[in-house]
């Protein structure tokens, strides 16, 4: 088992590495992590400290990305904003993945009425325009980054659930699972030892794409004025406040937009790369 695992891992990793776009995406993702964590060491400014007399300065050697309308350093805010935007992405997707995996496992493994009940619920949730649901709830609750992560998570688990369920169904009747059942393994053990590891790949792909989606959703919410509450910097709300200055303080608008674009694209390429790597059917060189 273990030897097979490590062999697989090697193959997957090799395939991923050979995909130049995926690799580039992965490097951006990593670099971003490092930059956002090291933010306090990279920039001498505080993300929320104002300077009413130095507002809307264009980019210079002192302020790489200029200053915003209350004199905060945009580069600093974007570094700290990366922390927030990534946090939103990861926590939201974490919630979605957890719920989706549990629902999918239960549904697929136990089947029967429980399965149909859960799957009907998934169908219903799929009917709602997700962004409408998010809007309705977020706008009615008091603004908080935790609610935003929670709501994005709660409205994004259905895909994972279907995915995991399908995976479980295909594995459930395989020989080694049947064998495990025959020798008296408990349900829990079968699920965690034999079924779950097989579902990890597709879920990972889904989660990577989900993070990208959550970052975008947060920026849309911020654009509508109900995203991460200020003064906390997130790429979304830096961008949203920058739109008023599009014409002459372009640095407030351009940089956060580009940052979102590049980051989301990178996550997507990574997700796509992982998919190709674990599913040899569609991969590049076999």
């Amino acid at each position: 088992m273990t030897r097979r695992d490590s062999y697989l891992r090697d193959v997957v990793w090799r395939r991923f590495r050979e995909n130049r776009f995926a690799l580039a995406g992965g490097m951006v993702v990593l670099a971003l992590f490092v930059l956002s964590i090291l933010a306090p060491f990279i920039t001498p400014y505080e993300p929320n400290s104002l300077d009413a007399y130095h507002v809307l300065l264009p980019p210079s050697s002192a302020h790489w990305f200029g200053t915003d309308e209350v004199g905060r350093d945009v580069f600093t805010r974007m570094l700290y904003g990366a922390q927030i935007s990534l946090k939103v992405g990861f926590v939201a997707v974490g919630i979605a993945t957890l719920i989706g995996t549990v629902v999918g496992l239960v549904s697929g493994y136990y089947g029967g009425w429980l399965d149909s009940l859960l799957m009907r619920f998934v169908d219903i949730m799929f009917c709602f325009p997700t962004f409408f649901l998010i809007l309705a709830v977020i706008a009615l609750l008091e603004p908080s980054i935790w609610y935003i992560m929670l709501i994005i998570g709660l409205t994004g688990w259905m895909g994972v659930a279907r995915l995991v369920r399908a995976e479980v169904l295909s594995i459930r009747e395989r020989d080694y699972v049947l064998a495990a059942r025959v020798i008296g393994c408990s349900d829990m053990r079968i699920i965690f030892r034999h079924i779950l590891p097989n579902a990890v790949g597709p879920v990972l792909v889904y989660a990577t794409l989900g993070i990208a989606g959550a970052i975008l959703t947060e920026s849309s919410l911020s654009f509508l004025g109900i995203g991460v509450p200020p003064p906390t910097p997130s790429w979304g709300n830096i961008l949203a406040s920058g739109k008023e200055f599009l014409e002459f303080a372009w640095w407030l608008f351009l940089f956060p937009g580009l940052a979102i674009m590049v980051t989301v694209l990178s996550y997507y390429l990574v997700g796509e790369g992982i998919r190709d790597a674990i599913d040899p059917r569609f991969s590049s060189r076999r």
Binding site: S220, K243, E247, T263, E272
Partner: peptide, 28 residues
């Protein structure tokens, strides 16, 4: 490869951002 990047770029761009830029460019 490049069509992949192109379509993903469409997905990855905050559309309100792109819209406002185009609006400014072509409208103003």
């Amino acid at each position: 490869r490049w069509t992949t990047v192109f379509v993903f770029l469409g997905f990855a761009t905050p559309l309100f951002w792109l819209s406002l830029i185009l609006m400014y460019l072509f409208g103003v």
